[in-house]
Structures are given as structure tokens and as C-alpha cells.
Write a protein that binds this DNA or RNA. Structure first.
Lengths: 236, 236
DNA sequence: GCGCGTTTTTGCGCTATCGCAAACTGCCTG
DNA sequence: CAGGCAGTTTGCGATAGCGCAAAAACGCGC
């Protein structure tokens, strides 16, 4: 198997406080793999046999209800881990992971985790931070869903995506991977119809430029205002 | 300070895999305190100087928006930890903790945490599990808020409370601490008015019996059906 | 036992958002 | 280059749930 270059991952939060030699040892336990766009990496409910670190591309983690509806749990950006089921004591993946763009990942077998944590306590600490951060983000999302209306939630969602995976252009910030109205609906707890209407509205105000699975924020600053305005203030 | 009886807490998830002598040492670092009903234990945004284990009573963790709206993050039952901000790398409490009933807690200084996890790795592992579980619960909650309507969410919320803190009576299951319509609204992302209407409806169908800050599930089984029925099925 | 503050109930209009259906667009395939 | 398909837009009701306001019920303290 091709050796992974240590210097490429040494700075990631996951490996903070890990000595170079140790990192080398950790990486030796991993293999890498490539997933083309629109291929599943793992399915909700499957045995959690591996955990992952995304090197390139973008991955969507989504949860499906018994009746088939989906919500997007999060989008994974390069440098982030996913599929950490075992770290939190789950035997099965609680969500489905899909490569939304051609993606390259490092894969460790779940079975290696206990040994790694024991030898490199920093790994455990870092993972704890990561999971904790995600917990807080979830709470924020719940708060938003409880107190804000759809337009504000969509604004927040896009700003987060821009922040996480935005590509600066001279005429705005482009979200750097294919994302549909449906996806945004599933991130904000609404329907693709409503998202479409909102984006159409913004487009006619020059706030965004958007096409098929493509969104560019032209006026991020004004979208921030939308995201933060209180339930009643201002209108068109 | 009164010594805490080891045998009372040894079986808790937090101390799984910790040897009795070690447990003794851990407990020596804690002090206990009593909070009367309706007193704050810590406030959102305050320095996370301590973390807690609830021994008796019930604690509500709630998050407040800049505009003053609140949501209930969770209710803490005896045996559970709360205020773990530091474990997840947060310097400030992300929520407010309020004793909703006379409560007794164990309190460790945040500063003791690094030493404790180093000496007793099982603590770190157990905490990881706990935080992971809460993350999954949050995701479930987001899923529900996205896909179910209010009545179903209220049904689920009450069933969870009954499960966590239900007291079996011969005529049903009583939720064992004071909880208002407003509280339930803040758990499910709706308004107290809507919760009141729903409970009135259930009451007239004999599904629940409720009063001021008091709820008894008379027909848990039928409420389960309500919670699970798909968006369109059956009606009155 | 009475008065008071809090919680709960309920009526009534309002509207944000859904849900369905149909038309449209742009891309990719053959 | 034509055809087909996935994604998007938009119109038009329908409605779940909100928000306000007022009344009622309850439990508490004096």
C-alpha cells in the first residue's frame, strides 16, 4: 500500500499533540481508498468496522427515518474524521455516508481503536473535543429549528457551508461541492420547494447566484443580516 | 465534609470499570452540595469551574437565545453527570442548569479533570460513551423535529421522560418531577398553547391525567401508537 | 379561609409553510 | 444533435400551528 505522507496530516486537530514518530505508527495502521462521486462509503445500520479521515473531497452524513425521509447530519470537509461510531460505543453506524464529490479517505479498522487510544492518549483527548464540538453544534441546530423561521435557518446553513467549504471568488463565495435544494432542505428541516422559493427570492435581490447543485454567495454580509434578524424586523 | 458512600455510586456508568480503591480516591476530590428547588446550579456562559454528578433530584439544562427564548436541552436524572464543558474543551458552560426539584449533587473542580483522566483512563472512556450517546440523542431529536408534527414530538418527549424518570402507579406512570406545559414546549420546539391543547385532547380521551406541573400517562401504550403513526394515518 | 400569582385552558384569526401538480431548464448520454 | 432525465421553479390551495387575549383553575402564603 502507498505510504501516507505524514506532513499532510500532522497539523490536523485529530493528531494535535502527537509526536511525529507516533503519527507514523498510527498511519501505518491505516489504508487509503478512493470513492467516486455519489458512492456510498457506509450505510446506516451496518457494522461499524472502520473509521475514516477525509483527505480530499466531500462526504455527506445523513440519517434516514423508518418511513424513508432523510436529514443531513453534516457535511464532512477534508481533514475531518467521520464514522466514529465505535469511539462512542456504537456497534453500528448511526448514519449513511455518501461521497458527494470524488473523495479520498484514510481508513482504520475499528479494532485498532482501543490499542491506538491506549498508546496515544492524545488521540482520545482530541476525539473527545471533536465529539463535544459536534454535540454543541447539534444543540445549536436544535435551538435554531425551535426558534427561527425557515429563511433564517437556510441563511445560517449556507453561511456555515461557505465557512467550512467556501471557495473565494472575486464575485463572492462558492460552496465547493455539489449541493441540491433538497440537500439544503434536509439540513434545515424544510422542503425543497420552500428552499427553492427562498433562493429564487435571494437571487432576484442579488444576494446569491445559483444553478444546478451550485450556489455562490454574492453578498455574504447581507445574508448574515438575514440570518440574524429577529422574527419581526424589516421586510422587502 | 461528609464522606460519600462509595457503594451508592459504584454502579453508575461514569464509574464502570473503576476499581473500588480508585473510586474512593476519585470521590475524595469531590464535595457534595444541595440545591433547593428552582435554584440555578450554573448559568450559561459562566466559567466552567466544576462538573457535576446528580445524586438526588432533577436538573434541567436549558439554552437561551440572544433574544431570550429558551429550549430545554435535557433533563438530568439521578446518576447522570452534567456540566461536562471542560471534558469537551469548552471554557464556559453552554447552557444553564436549574434544579427543578430539591437536588443533591457531587461537585468536582474542573481543574481535577486532567489528573483524574490520566490516572483513571476508564473515566475518559466512560465520558466518551456518555457524550456520544447524547450526540446521538440530539441527532434523533433533530430528525424528529424535521419529520414529525407536534403531536408526535410531544408524545415522544413524554415517553422518554416517563422512561427516564417515570414512577409507576397502579393507574399509570407519573413523571416524577414538576414540569410545565412551557417546559414541554421548549423540549419539542412548539408553544405552551399548542402543548396545552394537545394534552387537553389526550386527557379527554383518557390517555393522560394532568395538572399543574404534573403529568400521569394513563395509557402509555396508546401514546406510543400516537408517537409512531405516520403523518397521514388515522384521526379522531 | 381568602386573596394572589402562576399556570393552564380556550377562542379566534392569521400566516408561514407545506403539498401537489405542472411546466421549465440545463446537462449528459447515445 | 436529439432525447431524456434529474434538478429546479412556480402557481395554487390547504392547514398546522402560532400569537394574542381573556378567562378559568389551582395551589400557596398570610
Amino acid at each position: 500500500m502507498a505510504k501516507v505522507d505524514t506532513s499532510l496530516v500532522a497539523h490536523l486537530p485529530m493528531f494535535a499533540g502527537v509526536k511525529p514518530d507516533d503519527l507514523d505508527e498510527i498511519l501505518r495502521e491505516a489504508r487509503s481508498a478512493r470513492y467516486p462521486r455519489n458512492t456510498a462509503i457506509f450505510e446506516q445500520g451496518a457494522d461499524a468496522q472502520s473509521f475514516f479521515l477525509l483527505l480530499h473531497g466531500h462526504v455527506r452524513a445523513a440519517k434516514t427515518t423508518p418511513t424513508g425521509e432523510q436529514i443531513v447530519v453534516r457535511y464532512v470537509a477534508p481533514g475531518e474524521t467521520f464514522g466514529l461510531a465505535m469511539a462512542i460505543g456504537a456497534a453500528h453506524y448511526p448514519a449513511t455516508a455518501l461521497a458527494v464529490d470524488d473523495s479520498v479517505v484514510l481508513i482504520w479498522p475499528t479494532s485498532a481503536w482501543p490499542r491506538l487510544v491506549e498508546r496515544f492518549p492524545a488521540l482520545a483527548a482530541n476525539t473527545m473535543q471533536t465529539v463535544g464540538k459536534r454535540l454543541q453544534e447539534s444543540h445549536t441546530r436544535i435551538l435554531e429549528m425551535s426558534t427561527q423561521q425557515v429563511e433564517q435557518r437556510v441563511a445560517h446553513a449556507l453561511l456555515r457551508l461557505a465557512n467550512q467549504s467556501g471557495k473565494k471568488l472575486d464575485h463572492g463565495i462558492e460552496i465547493d461541492f455539489p449541493i441540491s435544494r433538497q440537500d439544503i432542505a434536509q439540513m434545515t428541516g424544510t422542503t425543497l420547494h420552500t428552499v427553492s422559493r427562498i433562493l429564487s427570492g435571494w437571487e432576484s435581490q442579488g444576494l446569491v447566484e445559483s444553478g444546478r447543485q451550485r450556489i455562490i454567495l454574492r453578498e455574504p454580509h447581507k445574508i448574515v443580516v438575514l440570518a440574524e434578524r429577529s422574527p419581526d424586523s424589516g421586510a422587502a
